[in-house]
């Protein structure tokens, strides 16, 4: 049986943003890529979804207070 780390209850949903989505996001936030929080390219989940350094990852967390919250990290 192949283990998918993303299925673990502690791991929130990770998605790679497409180029257009990434550009739009940075425009809305009014910041450059480097100002986002980081995630390592060697992170097990990043490896699993196959993201490359420079990609932006959208993380949909289950939040205790907001129910659902969206977070972005830059792969470095």
């Amino acid at each position: 049986m192949k283990i998918r780390l993303q299925d673990h209850i502690l791991v929130p949903k990770h998605e790679i943003l497409s180029k257009e989505e990434a550009e739009e996001l940075l425009k809305i936030l009014g910041i450059s890529k480097e100002q986002l929080p980081k995630i390592k390219a060697s992170d097990p989940i990043v490896v699993e979804i196959g993201a490359k350094p420079g990609d932006i990852i959208k993380i949909t967390r289950k939040s205790l207070t907001a129910g659902k919250s969206v977070f972005y990290r830059l792969v470095v």
Partner: peptide, 12 residues
Amino acid sequence: IYEVLGIEAARN
């Protein structure tokens, strides 16, 4: 957890 499941799982 950080090593096996990554940074977001560690945060949780």
